[in-house]
Amino acid sequence: MRGRKELEKYWGRPYTDTRDWSIYNERLVRRGEFYLSLDFIDHWTDLVSRMNTGKPGRPFHYPEPFITWMAFIHVFLQMPYRQMEGFTRKLSIFIPSLVSADYTTLFRRIKRLDISLRVDPTILSRNVIIAVDSTGIKVTNRGEWMREKWRVRRGWIKVHAMIDIETNQILGLEVTDESVQDDARCIPLLDQVQQHCGREHTIRRLLADGAYDRNEIFNTLEKRGILSGIKTRTDAATRSTGSPYRAECVRERVRLGGYREWAQDIDYGMRWKAEGVFSSGKRIFGETVRATSKEGMIREVKMKMNCYNMLLTMVK
């Protein structure tokens, strides 16, 4: 791994930290307010009443915002469901209008929550630059020694995501097992990003490493009017072999003088924003999942990514 001086020599310029640290620190502090966002309590009766209007069978006793809040507590504080019952029981003593819930009800209601990716398009710029990458999530927290000793291998859960490099917001998300290759999920992710951006925001460029160097992806970018920031192979052909746009991008890299000049020209270094989001997510939520079924693991990871997006938008 290169040190700072080596990197400065390699890239020809030092890294300049332009953050306003007073604003940055305040955003981190305000994240703590997220845990106690209890605005729904004042509207508890009205919310439950609307949910039960025309509902056959057993009525609801807990509004959807309360269940969503408990899901956040479950994810952020990594609190088991039985402890969550005790948490609400004690909290209802201090807040009489809050009705405590048993753990089976919390489990069933949280399991039925809508976990589709939540995006706030109002904080996006007019021209959006996205970075795509993937990362692995461990499916067990047992140590490396245990895996080596007993030859236990349970694989990984793989998170594929497209990130807005300006706001760090996740605009596209796919969760698969480890067998799915990165490039196979690129176009479905791009579909999600365009849906979330709508007509008000244009995707200007896609930044990606060599794992996404595929003709199909280049052809899709050309068709949709998105500039490529995909790192092509050093021995890539400069003539069309299935994708004229890819060949054009290779010729542009050669014209600029090589990879280093190409990377500086398109600001390829901003691709690290995707790795930064994954790193932040793992620091906040941990590197493992607690669910045991594959479906449960995927739901848990999606809930965590949704919480990350909401955490970003509430402190902007």
Rank of each mutant, 00 (worst) to 15 (best):
I95E: 05
W69H: 13
K273C: 13
F94L: 15
H201R: 14
D120V: 06
Y24T: 15
R109A: 12
K55L: 15
S92M: 06
K5L: 10
Q169T: 14
T140P: 00
D265A: 12
M305Q: 03
R299Q: 14
I187H: 05
M70W: 02
P244E: 13
G276S: 13
S116C: 05
E33Q: 07
S100M: 06
E275N: 10
V315W: 02
N168P: 01
A274P: 05
S280N: 12
L189G: 09
L221I: 07
Q195V: 07
I73G: 03
I130C: 12
Q195L: 08
Y259M: 13
R185M: 14
M70R: 03
R142E: 15
V152T: 02
R58Y: 14
I226C: 05
R153H: 13
R153V: 03
T88I: 06
Y212V: 10
P188Y: 02
Y212P: 09
D183Q: 11
R283C: 08
I230Q: 02
F40S: 02
P63T: 02
E300A: 04
A247I: 04
K90C: 13
Q192V: 09
N141E: 12
R142F: 15
S37T: 10
I230M: 05
V315G: 06
A101G: 01
I115R: 12
W272T: 14
H74Y: 12
F107P: 01
Q169W: 13
N309T: 04
R260D: 14
I170G: 03
W272E: 09
D20L: 11
R255D: 15
N215F: 00
W272G: 08
I110W: 06
G198S: 11
F285V: 04
G258P: 11
L38F: 11
Q78I: 13
Y15Q: 12
L124T: 05
T176C: 04
H196C: 04
E222I: 00
R4P: 09
N168C: 13
W44D: 08
E300C: 05
L312W: 01
R253S: 00
Q83Y: 06
E64H: 00
R154L: 14
R118C: 01
T104P: 00
R109V: 01
I187P: 06
G286M: 07
R89Y: 07
L190G: 00
D120T: 08
P59Q: 07
W145G: 01
H196Q: 15
K304F: 01
L106T: 07
G269Q: 11
T68Q: 12
E144Y: 12
I217Q: 09
Y10H: 15
F218H: 14
R142H: 14
I93A: 15
L38Y: 06
G281S: 07
R58M: 12
E64A: 00
K55C: 06
V119P: 03
T18M: 12
R151Y: 10
R2H: 11
M297Q: 15
I230E: 02
T140K: 04
E200S: 13
